[in-house]
Computed example of a mutant assay.
Amino acid sequence: MSGSPDLGVEKHGHVTLIEIRRPPLNFFDLSLIQQIADTLDQLDEDKDCRAVVLASQGKAFCAGANFNRPVADGGDAASGTGTTGDLYLEAVRIFRNKKPIVAAVQGAAIGGGLGLAVSADFRVACPEARFAANFTRLGFHPGFGLTITLPEIIGKTNAALMFYTSRRVTGEEAFKMGLANILVPQDQVRAEAFKLANEIAENSPLGLLSTRATMRAGLADRVKAQTDHELAEQTWLRQTEDFKEGVKATEERRLPKFQGR
């Protein structure tokens, strides 16, 4: 199976590595999310693949959407190309995949990048990792299905805390709240992710697929319904002065001065 300049795909026995190759920050757009979804669809048909490791080159796992990227006609800044609705349709495809995924989070997983990390079954992280749902700091509303997936993993109160404050959660904090399943030194993150994926892959492939389908029953449909709502909220917030100020403040690395309009 071949990859692309932005996405590497490598087979290691019964485990397949999907590697995001947009270092150092690995910003995503519609094209990248679509490539990941396409690859997972192909792996669903590959009987030799029993588990997946999702990793990234560079210092960040995925720093979210690149708001500075030029957009195509009819597009918007959050998705890079196409529309945010198109992006979320591709994201839902990721949640429909059949094979277990272990995310190797060696650095920042921010905004939609956190959504991508949360789409995996498990996350291996390190103290240097940072997890943030920084949407309100941008004058925005959470997306990528995070308003349903994150509470299911860390509880409603912890998720609300992350949403309302936009704070960055360290690897240690993420491990304590269950957002990270395994915590190891930074240089061991990928190896530990493969170790877990191989442990999963040692089991009956049919039993594994059946059990995972039961554990994640209805998840993709719930994410689809939630992204529809998230998109509606994001659409009107995108027109506000606060959103423009939030993006500008982020670019200038300063605290935003919101006016509530």
Rank of each mutant, 00 (worst) to 15 (best):
L183D: 05
L179R: 08
K257W: 02
D29V: 04
E199W: 08
G113S: 06
G107C: 10
T170D: 10
R130E: 14
G80Q: 10
G107N: 03
G178Q: 13
A129N: 02
G75D: 12
D44C: 09
I94K: 05
Q234T: 01
D121H: 04
F258M: 12
E45K: 13
L89A: 12
D73W: 02
A91K: 01
G143K: 01
R167H: 04
T214E: 07
T147I: 10
V9H: 08
Q35C: 02
E241R: 03
E230A: 10
L138D: 09
S204A: 01
E192G: 00
D44E: 10
A232G: 00
S210R: 12
G207L: 11
E152W: 14
G85P: 02
A78S: 14
A132D: 07
F27M: 10
L40M: 11
W236M: 07
V247A: 13
A201I: 08
I101R: 09
G115P: 06
F122Y: 10
V15R: 00
R222D: 15
F67H: 07
E233D: 11
S4I: 08
F258A: 01
T170V: 09
M1C: 09
R261D: 11
T227K: 09
H229Q: 03
G112M: 05
A104I: 11
R261M: 01
A104P: 06
L116A: 00
R93E: 13
D121P: 09
L17V: 05
L179G: 13
A103P: 14
S79M: 09
Q57M: 10
R130D: 03
R254F: 06
Q35T: 08
D187S: 10
A159C: 06
L114T: 11
L179W: 14
Q226A: 07
A51N: 02
A180N: 05
T235E: 13
F67E: 03
I153V: 15
V124Y: 01
S204F: 00
P100S: 06
K244P: 03
F61G: 08
E245V: 04
V169Q: 08
L206F: 06
E172D: 15
C49G: 09
F67N: 07
G75V: 07
A103K: 00
K99E: 06
V118Y: 01
K248F: 00
G178D: 05
S119A: 15
G82D: 04
K176P: 00
G74P: 04
Q259H: 12
N68L: 14
K98M: 12
G58I: 09
C126L: 04
P127G: 00
T157M: 04
K257N: 14
E241P: 00
F61I: 12
A63C: 15
T84M: 14
L161I: 03
E245D: 02
A225D: 15
V102S: 13
G171Q: 03
T235P: 00
G82H: 00
T16K: 04
T157L: 12
E19L: 05
P23F: 11
G143C: 05
A159V: 04
V169F: 10
A129E: 00
V52G: 07
V169W: 04
V102A: 12
